[in-house]
Nucleic acid binder design. Structure first.
Lengths: 204, 204
DNA sequence: CTGTAGTGGTGACCACGGTCACCACTTTGT
DNA sequence: ACAAAGTGGTGACCGTGGTCACCACTACAG
Protein backbone atom coordinates (compact mmCIF):
# COMPACT_ATOMS: atom_id res chain seq x y z
CA UNK A 1 0.00 0.00 0.00
CA UNK A 2 1.54 3.23 -1.15
CA UNK A 3 0.65 6.09 1.15
CA UNK A 4 2.02 8.65 -1.29
CA UNK A 5 -0.73 7.82 -3.73
CA UNK A 6 -3.60 7.58 -1.28
CA UNK A 7 -2.67 10.55 0.90
CA UNK A 8 -0.93 13.00 -1.40
CA UNK A 9 -2.05 15.99 0.65
CA UNK A 10 0.03 14.91 3.62
CA UNK A 11 3.67 15.94 3.96
CA UNK A 12 6.39 13.44 3.28
CA UNK A 13 7.49 13.73 6.87
CA UNK A 14 4.06 12.80 8.16
CA UNK A 15 3.69 9.94 5.70
CA UNK A 16 6.97 8.54 6.95
CA UNK A 17 5.82 8.86 10.54
CA UNK A 18 2.60 7.09 9.66
CA UNK A 19 4.46 4.33 7.92
CA UNK A 20 6.69 3.90 10.97
CA UNK A 21 4.22 4.22 13.85
CA UNK A 22 0.79 3.33 12.55
CA UNK A 23 -0.38 -0.21 12.01
CA UNK A 24 -1.62 -1.20 8.60
CA UNK A 25 -4.61 -3.54 8.82
CA UNK A 26 -7.03 -5.30 6.51
CA UNK A 27 -10.58 -5.61 7.80
CA UNK A 28 -13.16 -7.76 6.04
CA UNK A 29 -16.57 -6.34 5.14
CA UNK A 30 -19.37 -6.38 7.69
CA UNK A 31 -17.22 -6.19 10.78
CA UNK A 32 -18.16 -3.94 13.68
CA UNK A 33 -15.03 -2.00 14.56
CA UNK A 34 -16.41 0.50 17.09
CA UNK A 35 -19.28 0.22 19.54
CA UNK A 36 -21.13 2.82 21.54
CA UNK A 37 -19.57 3.24 24.97
CA UNK A 38 -16.26 1.83 23.85
CA UNK A 39 -13.06 3.68 24.66
CA UNK A 40 -10.86 4.44 21.72
CA UNK A 41 -7.25 3.32 21.53
CA UNK A 42 -6.55 3.84 17.86
CA UNK A 43 -7.73 6.29 15.25
CA UNK A 44 -8.38 4.71 11.89
CA UNK A 45 -7.38 6.37 8.65
CA UNK A 46 -9.06 4.62 5.76
CA UNK A 47 -6.91 3.87 2.70
CA UNK A 48 -9.28 1.61 0.80
CA UNK A 49 -12.82 0.45 1.33
CA UNK A 50 -15.75 1.96 3.17
CA UNK A 51 -16.82 2.31 6.77
CA UNK A 52 -20.35 3.08 7.91
CA UNK A 53 -20.93 5.16 11.04
CA UNK A 54 -24.31 4.81 12.70
CA UNK A 55 -26.28 5.14 15.95
CA UNK A 56 -28.60 2.73 17.69
CA UNK A 57 -31.48 3.11 20.07
CA UNK A 58 -33.47 0.08 21.17
CA UNK A 59 -32.76 -1.93 18.04
CA UNK A 60 -33.54 1.03 15.85
CA UNK A 61 -30.59 2.15 13.79
CA UNK A 62 -29.71 5.25 11.86
CA UNK A 63 -26.89 5.80 9.42
CA UNK A 64 -24.92 8.95 10.13
CA UNK A 65 -22.26 9.00 7.41
CA UNK A 66 -19.62 7.00 5.60
CA UNK A 67 -15.85 7.12 6.00
CA UNK A 68 -14.25 6.98 2.57
CA UNK A 69 -10.61 6.51 1.57
CA UNK A 70 -8.26 9.24 2.83
CA UNK A 71 -10.82 10.06 5.51
CA UNK A 72 -10.80 9.38 9.20
CA UNK A 73 -13.22 9.07 12.06
CA UNK A 74 -13.93 12.31 13.87
CA UNK A 75 -15.58 10.39 16.68
CA UNK A 76 -12.44 8.36 17.36
CA UNK A 77 -10.36 11.45 17.30
CA UNK A 78 -12.71 13.31 19.63
CA UNK A 79 -13.00 10.36 21.92
CA UNK A 80 -9.25 9.99 22.20
CA UNK A 81 -8.92 13.71 22.61
CA UNK A 82 -11.24 13.99 25.58
CA UNK A 83 -10.79 10.39 26.64
CA UNK A 84 -14.51 9.86 26.31
CA UNK A 85 -16.32 6.75 25.15
CA UNK A 86 -17.70 6.61 21.63
CA UNK A 87 -21.27 7.68 21.03
CA UNK A 88 -21.57 5.90 17.72
CA UNK A 89 -21.04 2.56 16.01
CA UNK A 90 -18.78 1.91 13.06
CA UNK A 91 -18.93 -1.07 10.70
CA UNK A 92 -16.92 -1.94 7.63
CA UNK A 93 -19.20 -1.84 4.64
CA UNK A 94 -16.61 -3.21 2.23
CA UNK A 95 -13.27 -4.92 2.72
CA UNK A 96 -11.21 -2.13 4.16
CA UNK A 97 -7.55 -1.26 4.43
CA UNK A 98 -6.77 1.24 7.16
CA UNK A 99 -3.95 2.74 9.14
CA UNK A 100 -4.48 2.53 12.88
CA UNK A 101 -2.92 5.52 14.59
CA UNK A 102 -2.26 5.06 18.31
CA UNK A 103 -3.89 7.91 20.22
CA UNK A 104 -0.66 8.94 21.94
CA UNK A 105 0.90 9.69 18.59
CA UNK A 106 -2.17 11.57 17.47
CA UNK A 107 -1.78 13.99 20.34
CA UNK A 108 1.85 14.60 19.48
CA UNK A 109 1.34 14.86 15.75
CA UNK A 110 -1.45 17.33 16.22
CA UNK A 111 1.22 19.71 17.53
CA UNK A 112 4.20 18.72 15.41
CA UNK A 113 2.53 18.21 12.04
CA UNK A 114 0.35 21.07 10.82
CA UNK A 115 -1.07 18.93 8.04
CA UNK A 116 -2.15 16.30 10.56
CA UNK A 117 -3.86 19.02 12.52
CA UNK A 118 -5.52 20.37 9.39
CA UNK A 119 -6.63 16.91 8.33
CA UNK A 120 -8.65 16.48 11.48
CA UNK A 121 -10.12 19.94 11.38
CA UNK A 122 -11.34 19.13 7.91
CA UNK A 123 -12.73 15.85 9.11
CA UNK A 124 -14.60 17.54 11.92
CA UNK A 125 -15.96 20.10 9.55
CA UNK A 126 -17.02 17.38 7.13
CA UNK A 127 -18.79 15.35 9.81
CA UNK A 128 -20.45 18.42 11.21
CA UNK A 129 -21.85 19.12 7.75
CA UNK A 130 -22.96 15.55 7.29
CA UNK A 131 -24.73 15.44 10.63
CA UNK A 132 -26.45 18.67 9.71
CA UNK A 133 -27.53 17.15 6.43
CA UNK A 134 -28.81 14.10 8.25
CA UNK A 135 -30.87 16.34 10.52
CA UNK A 136 -32.29 18.09 7.51
CA UNK A 137 -33.27 14.83 5.92
CA UNK A 138 -34.97 13.55 9.02
CA UNK A 139 -36.80 16.77 9.79
CA UNK A 140 -37.77 18.11 6.41
CA UNK A 141 -38.14 15.19 4.00
CA UNK A 142 -40.65 12.37 3.81
CA UNK A 143 -39.61 8.77 3.48
CA UNK A 144 -39.85 8.60 -0.31
CA UNK A 145 -37.42 11.47 -0.73
CA UNK A 146 -35.12 10.19 2.01
CA UNK A 147 -35.07 6.71 0.53
CA UNK A 148 -34.46 7.92 -3.00
CA UNK A 149 -31.62 10.20 -1.93
CA UNK A 150 -30.13 7.44 0.15
CA UNK A 151 -30.15 4.92 -2.71
CA UNK A 152 -28.64 7.51 -4.99
CA UNK A 153 -25.86 8.31 -2.53
CA UNK A 154 -25.10 4.65 -2.09
CA UNK A 155 -25.04 3.94 -5.79
CA UNK A 156 -22.54 6.73 -6.30
CA UNK A 157 -20.53 5.70 -3.28
CA UNK A 158 -19.96 2.07 -4.16
CA UNK A 159 -20.19 2.63 -7.91
CA UNK A 160 -22.54 -0.20 -8.81
CA UNK A 161 -25.86 0.55 -10.31
CA UNK A 162 -28.06 -2.34 -9.82
CA UNK A 163 -27.22 -1.89 -6.15
CA UNK A 164 -27.10 -5.09 -4.13
CA UNK A 165 -28.96 -4.29 -0.93
CA UNK A 166 -31.93 -5.62 1.00
CA UNK A 167 -35.01 -3.73 2.11
CA UNK A 168 -34.12 -4.64 5.67
CA UNK A 169 -30.74 -2.96 5.48
CA UNK A 170 -32.18 0.16 3.92
CA UNK A 171 -34.71 0.23 6.75
CA UNK A 172 -31.91 0.08 9.32
CA UNK A 173 -29.95 2.82 7.65
CA UNK A 174 -32.94 5.12 7.53
CA UNK A 175 -34.13 4.19 11.00
CA UNK A 176 -37.46 2.81 9.88
CA UNK A 177 -39.19 -0.54 9.38
CA UNK A 178 -38.77 -3.00 6.57
CA UNK A 179 -42.43 -2.85 5.55
CA UNK A 180 -42.14 0.88 5.11
CA UNK A 181 -39.25 0.45 2.70
CA UNK A 182 -41.16 -2.16 0.72
CA UNK A 183 -44.12 0.18 0.54
CA UNK A 184 -42.12 3.24 -0.47
CA UNK A 185 -40.02 1.25 -2.94
CA UNK A 186 -43.17 0.29 -4.77
CA UNK A 187 -44.14 3.95 -4.91
CA UNK A 188 -40.73 4.92 -6.31
CA UNK A 189 -41.04 2.12 -8.84
CA UNK A 190 -44.41 3.32 -10.12
CA UNK A 191 -42.88 6.78 -10.40
CA UNK A 192 -40.15 5.25 -12.61
CA UNK A 193 -37.38 6.42 -10.33
CA UNK A 194 -36.04 2.96 -9.59
CA UNK A 195 -36.47 -0.62 -10.76
CA UNK A 196 -36.37 -3.64 -8.50
CA UNK A 197 -34.42 -6.80 -9.16
CA UNK A 198 -34.05 -9.83 -6.93
CA UNK A 199 -31.90 -8.62 -4.00
CA UNK A 200 -30.95 -5.49 -5.88
CA UNK A 201 -32.24 -2.07 -6.83
CA UNK A 202 -31.56 -0.23 -10.06
CA UNK A 203 -31.49 3.53 -10.03
CA UNK A 204 -33.08 5.03 -13.15
CA UNK B 1 -14.41 42.96 30.47
CA UNK B 2 -11.62 40.92 31.99
CA UNK B 3 -10.56 38.11 29.69
CA UNK B 4 -8.50 36.52 32.41
CA UNK B 5 -11.62 35.71 34.36
CA UNK B 6 -13.79 34.58 31.49
CA UNK B 7 -11.18 32.58 29.62
CA UNK B 8 -8.81 31.24 32.26
CA UNK B 9 -7.92 28.20 30.20
CA UNK B 10 -6.24 30.32 27.55
CA UNK B 11 -2.60 31.28 27.81
CA UNK B 12 -1.66 34.82 28.80
CA UNK B 13 -0.02 35.27 25.44
CA UNK B 14 -3.18 34.38 23.58
CA UNK B 15 -5.34 36.54 25.83
CA UNK B 16 -3.09 39.47 25.05
CA UNK B 17 -3.35 38.75 21.35
CA UNK B 18 -7.11 38.61 21.63
CA UNK B 19 -7.21 41.86 23.52
CA UNK B 20 -5.07 43.50 20.83
CA UNK B 21 -6.54 42.07 17.63
CA UNK B 22 -10.11 41.04 18.34
CA UNK B 23 -12.98 43.47 18.53
CA UNK B 24 -15.08 43.52 21.66
CA UNK B 25 -18.76 44.03 20.88
CA UNK B 26 -22.08 44.21 22.71
CA UNK B 27 -25.03 42.73 20.86
CA UNK B 28 -28.59 43.20 22.09
CA UNK B 29 -30.88 40.20 22.52
CA UNK B 30 -32.90 38.93 19.57
CA UNK B 31 -30.48 39.97 16.86
CA UNK B 32 -29.68 37.70 13.94
CA UNK B 33 -25.89 37.65 13.63
CA UNK B 34 -25.40 34.92 11.05
CA UNK B 35 -27.58 33.78 8.17
CA UNK B 36 -27.51 30.69 6.03
CA UNK B 37 -25.45 31.28 2.90
CA UNK B 38 -23.54 34.12 4.47
CA UNK B 39 -19.77 34.19 4.24
CA UNK B 40 -17.96 34.54 7.51
CA UNK B 41 -15.52 37.33 8.22
CA UNK B 42 -15.22 37.08 11.98
CA UNK B 43 -15.38 34.26 14.47
CA UNK B 44 -17.26 35.15 17.63
CA UNK B 45 -16.07 34.10 21.04
CA UNK B 46 -18.85 34.63 23.58
CA UNK B 47 -17.89 36.22 26.89
CA UNK B 48 -21.33 36.88 28.30
CA UNK B 49 -24.83 36.10 27.18
CA UNK B 50 -26.26 33.40 24.96
CA UNK B 51 -26.44 32.71 21.25
CA UNK B 52 -28.87 30.31 19.60
CA UNK B 53 -27.80 28.34 16.53
CA UNK B 54 -30.57 26.98 14.35
CA UNK B 55 -31.56 25.84 10.84
CA UNK B 56 -34.49 26.78 8.66
CA UNK B 57 -36.35 25.10 5.87
CA UNK B 58 -39.40 26.72 4.34
CA UNK B 59 -40.35 28.68 7.46
CA UNK B 60 -39.82 25.64 9.61
CA UNK B 61 -37.07 26.12 12.16
CA UNK B 62 -35.04 23.82 14.35
CA UNK B 63 -32.78 24.69 17.24
CA UNK B 64 -29.39 23.03 16.96
CA UNK B 65 -27.55 24.20 20.07
CA UNK B 66 -26.60 27.19 22.19
CA UNK B 67 -23.29 29.03 22.38
CA UNK B 68 -22.52 29.82 26.00
CA UNK B 69 -19.85 32.05 27.55
CA UNK B 70 -16.28 30.93 26.79
CA UNK B 71 -17.60 29.05 23.79
CA UNK B 72 -17.38 29.78 20.11
CA UNK B 73 -19.12 28.93 16.91
CA UNK B 74 -17.79 25.86 15.15
CA UNK B 75 -19.72 26.79 12.03
CA UNK B 76 -17.99 30.17 11.75
CA UNK B 77 -14.66 28.56 12.27
CA UNK B 78 -15.34 25.89 9.70
CA UNK B 79 -16.74 28.39 7.25
CA UNK B 80 -13.71 30.60 7.55
CA UNK B 81 -11.46 27.60 7.37
CA UNK B 82 -12.83 26.30 4.09
CA UNK B 83 -14.12 29.67 2.94
CA UNK B 84 -17.59 28.21 2.66
CA UNK B 85 -20.89 29.91 3.40
CA UNK B 86 -22.66 29.20 6.65
CA UNK B 87 -25.23 26.43 6.72
CA UNK B 88 -26.92 27.68 9.87
CA UNK B 89 -28.44 30.74 11.49
CA UNK B 90 -27.33 32.33 14.74
CA UNK B 91 -29.33 34.70 16.89
CA UNK B 92 -28.55 36.35 20.21
CA UNK B 93 -30.90 34.96 22.80
CA UNK B 94 -29.77 37.35 25.52
CA UNK B 95 -27.74 40.55 25.48
CA UNK B 96 -24.35 39.24 24.51
CA UNK B 97 -20.76 40.39 24.85
CA UNK B 98 -18.42 38.75 22.40
CA UNK B 99 -14.95 38.99 20.94
CA UNK B 100 -14.92 39.03 17.17
CA UNK B 101 -11.82 37.35 15.84
CA UNK B 102 -10.90 38.23 12.25
CA UNK B 103 -10.54 35.05 10.23
CA UNK B 104 -7.02 35.86 9.07
CA UNK B 105 -5.84 35.88 12.66
CA UNK B 106 -7.65 32.66 13.39
CA UNK B 107 -5.66 30.90 10.70
CA UNK B 108 -2.40 32.18 12.14
CA UNK B 109 -3.27 31.53 15.77
CA UNK B 110 -4.31 28.00 14.99
CA UNK B 111 -0.64 27.39 14.20
CA UNK B 112 1.06 29.65 16.70
CA UNK B 113 -1.13 29.10 19.77
CA UNK B 114 -1.72 25.48 20.75
CA UNK B 115 -4.44 26.48 23.19
CA UNK B 116 -6.30 28.30 20.43
CA UNK B 117 -6.06 25.18 18.35
CA UNK B 118 -7.25 23.05 21.23
CA UNK B 119 -10.14 25.40 21.96
CA UNK B 120 -11.58 24.87 18.50
CA UNK B 121 -11.07 21.15 18.53
CA UNK B 122 -13.04 21.09 21.74
CA UNK B 123 -15.73 23.25 20.18
CA UNK B 124 -16.00 20.95 17.20
CA UNK B 125 -16.22 17.97 19.44
CA UNK B 126 -18.88 19.67 21.54
CA UNK B 127 -20.99 20.62 18.53
CA UNK B 128 -20.62 17.19 17.02
CA UNK B 129 -21.97 15.73 20.25
CA UNK B 130 -24.80 18.21 20.38
CA UNK B 131 -25.85 17.55 16.79
CA UNK B 132 -25.78 13.86 17.57
CA UNK B 133 -27.99 14.46 20.57
CA UNK B 134 -30.36 16.51 18.45
CA UNK B 135 -30.59 13.64 15.99
CA UNK B 136 -31.37 11.27 18.81
CA UNK B 137 -34.11 13.52 20.09
CA UNK B 138 -35.72 13.88 16.70
CA UNK B 139 -35.51 10.21 15.82
CA UNK B 140 -36.16 8.43 19.04
CA UNK B 141 -38.34 10.65 21.24
CA UNK B 142 -41.94 11.76 20.93
CA UNK B 143 -42.94 15.38 21.23
CA UNK B 144 -43.83 15.28 24.93
CA UNK B 145 -40.37 14.04 25.86
CA UNK B 146 -38.66 16.41 23.46
CA UNK B 147 -40.63 19.38 24.74
CA UNK B 148 -40.04 18.52 28.37
CA UNK B 149 -36.31 18.06 27.88
CA UNK B 150 -36.14 21.26 25.93
CA UNK B 151 -37.89 23.31 28.61
CA UNK B 152 -35.66 21.75 31.23
CA UNK B 153 -32.52 22.60 29.28
CA UNK B 154 -33.67 26.14 28.77
CA UNK B 155 -34.57 26.65 32.41
CA UNK B 156 -31.11 25.50 33.44
CA UNK B 157 -29.46 27.53 30.74
CA UNK B 158 -30.98 30.91 31.51
CA UNK B 159 -31.47 30.16 35.20
CA UNK B 160 -35.04 31.37 35.57
CA UNK B 161 -37.72 28.97 36.58
CA UNK B 162 -40.98 30.36 35.59
CA UNK B 163 -39.46 30.54 32.14
CA UNK B 164 -40.70 33.41 30.01
CA UNK B 165 -41.34 31.90 26.61
CA UNK B 166 -44.22 31.58 24.17
CA UNK B 167 -45.66 28.41 22.68
CA UNK B 168 -44.84 29.81 19.27
CA UNK B 169 -41.16 30.11 20.08
CA UNK B 170 -41.00 26.62 21.52
CA UNK B 171 -42.64 25.39 18.35
CA UNK B 172 -39.96 27.04 16.25
CA UNK B 173 -37.16 25.64 18.33
CA UNK B 174 -38.52 22.13 18.09
CA UNK B 175 -39.44 22.43 14.44
CA UNK B 176 -43.15 21.86 14.96
CA UNK B 177 -46.40 23.83 15.02
CA UNK B 178 -47.77 26.04 17.75
CA UNK B 179 -50.93 23.98 18.18
CA UNK B 180 -48.83 20.92 18.83
CA UNK B 181 -46.99 22.68 21.64
CA UNK B 182 -50.27 23.84 23.17
CA UNK B 183 -51.58 20.31 23.00
CA UNK B 184 -48.49 18.68 24.45
CA UNK B 185 -48.14 21.37 27.14
CA UNK B 186 -51.58 20.48 28.40
CA UNK B 187 -50.53 16.86 28.55
CA UNK B 188 -47.38 17.73 30.51
CA UNK B 189 -49.49 19.87 32.83
CA UNK B 190 -51.92 17.07 33.63
CA UNK B 191 -48.90 14.88 34.33
CA UNK B 192 -47.74 17.52 36.84
CA UNK B 193 -44.43 18.02 35.09
CA UNK B 194 -44.96 21.70 34.38
CA UNK B 195 -47.33 24.49 35.31
CA UNK B 196 -48.46 27.22 32.94
CA UNK B 197 -48.54 30.91 33.76
CA UNK B 198 -49.43 33.77 31.47
CA UNK B 199 -46.54 33.97 28.97
CA UNK B 200 -44.43 31.71 31.12
CA UNK B 201 -43.89 28.08 32.01
CA UNK B 202 -42.88 26.72 35.38
CA UNK B 203 -40.89 23.52 35.55
CA UNK B 204 -41.97 21.31 38.47
C1' DC C 1 -61.34 54.28 22.38
C1' DT C 2 -60.41 51.17 18.95
C1' DG C 3 -57.89 48.52 15.82
C1' DT C 4 -53.99 45.47 15.53
C1' DA C 5 -50.94 42.08 16.86
C1' DG C 6 -49.69 39.12 20.05
C1' DT C 7 -50.86 35.51 23.26
C1' DG C 8 -53.13 30.43 24.23
C1' DG C 9 -57.13 27.02 23.53
C1' DT C 10 -59.90 23.73 20.86
C1' DG C 11 -62.21 20.37 17.75
C1' DA C 12 -62.06 18.15 13.37
C1' DC C 13 -59.52 16.03 10.00
C1' DC C 14 -56.09 13.22 7.89
C1' DA C 15 -51.60 11.68 6.07
C1' DC C 16 -47.50 9.45 7.11
C1' DG C 17 -45.35 5.98 8.91
C1' DG C 18 -44.95 2.26 12.56
C1' DT C 19 -46.90 -2.30 13.77
C1' DC C 20 -48.88 -6.86 13.32
C1' DA C 21 -49.91 -10.98 11.21
C1' DC C 22 -49.63 -13.16 7.66
C1' DC C 23 -47.83 -15.20 2.84
C1' DA C 24 -44.75 -16.92 -0.96
C1' DC C 25 -40.31 -17.53 -2.50
C1' DT C 26 -35.16 -18.31 -2.58
C1' DT C 27 -30.87 -19.32 -0.45
C1' DT C 28 -28.22 -21.51 2.94
C1' DG C 29 -26.56 -25.05 5.77
C1' DT C 30 -26.68 -29.70 7.75
C1' DA D 1 -33.54 -33.65 1.26
C1' DC D 2 -35.22 -30.86 4.51
C1' DA D 3 -35.19 -27.36 7.83
C1' DA D 4 -33.91 -22.77 8.84
C1' DA D 5 -33.15 -18.25 7.74
C1' DG D 6 -33.40 -14.74 4.70
C1' DT D 7 -35.74 -12.38 1.01
C1' DG D 8 -39.98 -9.20 -0.51
C1' DG D 9 -45.18 -8.46 -0.60
C1' DT D 10 -49.66 -7.24 1.47
C1' DG D 11 -53.85 -5.69 4.01
C1' DA D 12 -55.55 -3.87 8.22
C1' DC D 13 -55.06 -0.92 11.96
C1' DC D 14 -53.96 3.14 14.46
C1' DG D 15 -51.22 6.78 16.91
C1' DT D 16 -48.53 10.90 16.40
C1' DG D 17 -48.32 15.04 14.89
C1' DG D 18 -49.30 18.52 11.15
C1' DT D 19 -53.10 21.47 9.40
C1' DC D 20 -57.20 24.33 9.31
C1' DA D 21 -60.54 27.20 11.02
C1' DC D 22 -62.00 29.06 14.44
C1' DC D 23 -62.38 31.55 19.39
C1' DA D 24 -61.23 34.32 23.61
C1' DC D 25 -58.11 37.19 25.87
C1' DT D 26 -54.39 40.73 26.67
C1' DA D 27 -51.23 44.42 25.44
C1' DC D 28 -50.25 48.30 23.04
C1' DA D 29 -50.10 52.10 19.73
C1' DG D 30 -52.62 55.44 17.10
Amino acid sequence: MNLNETLPHLSLKLRNELEAKAELVQIPAGQEILREGQYVKVIPLVLEGLIKVHTKHEDKELLLYYIRPAESCAMSFAASFENEPSKVFATTEEDTTALLIPVEHATLWRKSHPDFNTLFFKQFNLRYSELLETIHHIMFNRMDQRLYDHIKERVELVGQNPLKISHRQLANELGTAREVITRVMKKLETENKVRQHPNAIELL
